[in-house]
Amino acid sequence: MHSEHKPLLSVRNLKTYFFQDEGTVKAVDGATFDVYPGKTLGVVGESGCGKSVTAQSILRIVDQPGRIVEGEIVLCCAKGTDVELTKLHPNSKEIRAIRGTEIGLVFQEPMTSFSPVHTVGNQIIEAIRLHCGISEREARAKAIETLRQVGIPKPERRIDEYAFELSGGLRQRAMIAVALSCDPRLLIADEPTTALDVTTQAQILDLLRRMQEQRGMAIMLITHNLGVIAEMADDVVVMYLGRVVEQGPVDAIFHSPKHPYTKALLRSIPSIESTPRVELPTISGSIPHPYNRPSGCPFFPRCPECIPGTCDTAEPTPIAVSEEQSVSCFLYPS
């Protein structure tokens, strides 16, 4: 897909495992996808599907006892050189430089990402100075400018306030300002609107889209909300239990989904468009616990189209069903 462009970030067969006393949790188990410049990649999945750990792996901030055991993450840097992120030490200078300037990060809960003892401004100014190496005064001016861009009213005053003095929406805007302060080319947004109300969510999504238009950056948007994906993404990666089950352009995913999980997920959500009070088609069962993932295709125990003898023993590999869409399922012959 997008063969005319070189991907900005390319993840190949990423495996991140957590080694715990109770057993190994394969949080990410062979994820492969690309993020293109100026585009939005939506990563969608339910709890335990490994979407957040994927983001943490890219930034190399996976918590102990997690470890990237396999795969590569290649980032095409501004200078045109390719950097293999999995080869870098998690505390090395290189990765720290990349975290601020090449990749920005927005978390779900903005309250915990801000230090309660420093003002919002201090934290932005610190980030700018660390990565851009400019004077305190210039950095402050730039911070105010960034706050203004993300739509915070009276940024000259807000810059000296603490995170807890801001409302949820403003805090998330400030978080985006921190992430954008050094002009990253990739913004990873991990559930950026989950903690917010719908009207605030609309504001933040709007802001993200505007920032993307202005700066031409790529966005990797991680969420469980299919509506948000449909509104925002250009390409979609659907994950289930650490694996990418299907990926393709947003229209193909929503209008001709191929994987039984994607199909069932789309059918099961009550939509504001759909007829009320009729029984929703559901996916039977619930998500298996990561210690107890099924062998073979991870979705087979809940899959209505499961092929006995195949799906429960062998693991499907991604198969291209169209030029841009691929699916990991035995229903589609390679």
Binding site: V198, T199, Q201, A202, L205, N225, L226, G227, V228, I229, A230, E231, M232, A233, V250, D251, F254, H255, L266, I269, S271, I272, E273
Partner: peptide, 8 residues
């Protein structure tokens, strides 16, 4: 404001 699960 509600995001609708349909890109169209």
């Amino acid at each position: 404001s509600v995001p609708k699960p349909d890109p169209r």
